[in-house]
Computed example of a mutant assay.
Amino acid sequence: MFVIGSHLSISKGYLYMGQEASSIGANTFQFFSRNPRGGQVRAFDEADMKALVAYMEEHNFGRLLAHAPYTLNACAAKPDLREFAKNSMREDLERMEYIPGNMYNFHPGSHVKQGMDQGIEYIIDCLNEVMFPGMKTTVLLEAMAGKGTEVGSKFEELARIIDGVKLKEYLGVCVDTCHIHEGGYDIVNNLEGVLDEFDSIVGIDRLHAIHLNDSKNPIGAHKDRHEKIGEGHIGIDAIARIVTHPKLTNLPFYLETPNELDGYAKEIAMLRSIVDNA
């Protein structure tokens, strides 16, 4: 089953997001766990979450992806910001237990001139504090574009974080096509080589999700500028190779392109057509 969805707003509730996903031809979706630019969280509503779980089962949805806010920086220089990251992630993961079997994605963070080693150490410390035995959610490190002092733009950095986490059986990676393209990985001309490199460094079994985006910038730009599918420097031919690659077809794809719902619907239909005709 080809699993494809887009980024939806949680403002109207969990069940509403499921219904909205269906309306645009999606069979999964991504949502921010809380205000992406702040940290305020929606009031807890167990009944609404259970209604979403039932809806997903009824409509044969793939795994959902909750996205931590952009303000979360697990390797910030200031202790209070690191504490905010831990508290937010801990609460988010506790809530995710009510929609079990899904995923929680976060940007590893920016070390803000403390150095990569210190940044990675702080991220490991955060994960070791917030993850717990028996959890029903897979936590994903997102591969980044490498702007500023971002951690996670190189596969080796992701592998180092995973190696340091005690409960690594609950840990995986989300690859963003725009990010790794702008991070310097040639997914346009050498997708197979990039996947082999990921497998040798991180392990392909750690890859649980794909953020499917085109890029406004050429390879290696390190700027993180998403573009609509087929309208950027990655291009529709390379995107088609990604969604039909045998090592990736079992993964859910989540669109983060600069679109409204009608734009997402068109992209989903186009990508389904590519997969169906492959």
Rank of each mutant, 00 (worst) to 15 (best):
Q118Y: 07
Q118T: 15
Q118V: 15
Q118K: 14
Q118S: 12
Q118N: 11
G119N: 03
G119W: 00
I120P: 05
I120Y: 02
I120R: 06
I120L: 02
I120D: 06
E121F: 05
E121W: 00
Y122R: 13
Y122T: 01
Y122Q: 14
Y122A: 09
Y122G: 02
Y122H: 15
I123C: 01
I124Q: 04
I124S: 07
I124A: 06
I124L: 01
I124R: 05
D125E: 13
D125Y: 03
C126A: 14
C126D: 03
C126R: 09
C126Y: 00
C126N: 12
L127E: 05
L127D: 05
L127M: 13
L127C: 06
N128L: 08
N128I: 02
E129N: 10
E129H: 12
E129W: 00
V130E: 04
V130F: 00
V130W: 00
V130D: 03
V130P: 02
M131W: 06
M131P: 08
M131H: 08
F132Y: 15
F132A: 08
F132N: 00
F132S: 11
F132L: 00
P133I: 09
P133C: 08
P133N: 09
P133V: 11
P133Y: 13
G134T: 04
G134S: 12
M135P: 04
M135L: 09
K136A: 13
K136F: 04
K136S: 15
K136W: 02
K136V: 07
T137P: 03
T137L: 08
T137C: 03
T138N: 10
T138M: 12
V139A: 05
L140E: 07
L140Y: 01
L141M: 07
L141T: 01
L141D: 00
L141W: 00
E142R: 06
A143Q: 15
A143L: 14
A143E: 14
A143C: 13
M144L: 15
A145C: 06
G146R: 06
G146A: 09
K147S: 14
K147I: 09
K147Q: 15
G148A: 12
T149N: 11
T149I: 08
T149M: 10
T149Q: 11
E150V: 13
E150N: 13
E150R: 10
E150G: 09
E150S: 15
V151S: 07
V151D: 02
V151E: 03
G152C: 13
G152N: 06
S153W: 14
S153I: 03
S153D: 14
K154Y: 04
K154S: 10
K154F: 02
K154E: 14
K154T: 11
F155Q: 10
E156P: 08
E157R: 12
L158M: 11
A159C: 11
A159D: 08
A159H: 11
R160S: 13
R160V: 10
R160W: 11
I161D: 01
I161L: 07
I162M: 06
I162K: 04
D163T: 09
D163C: 03
G164W: 10
G164D: 03
G164M: 01
G164L: 01
G164E: 00
G164P: 04
V165E: 01
V165R: 05
V165Q: 01
V165K: 01
V165S: 00
V165Y: 02
K166M: 11
K166R: 15
K166C: 05
L167E: 03
L167Q: 07
K168D: 09
K168R: 14
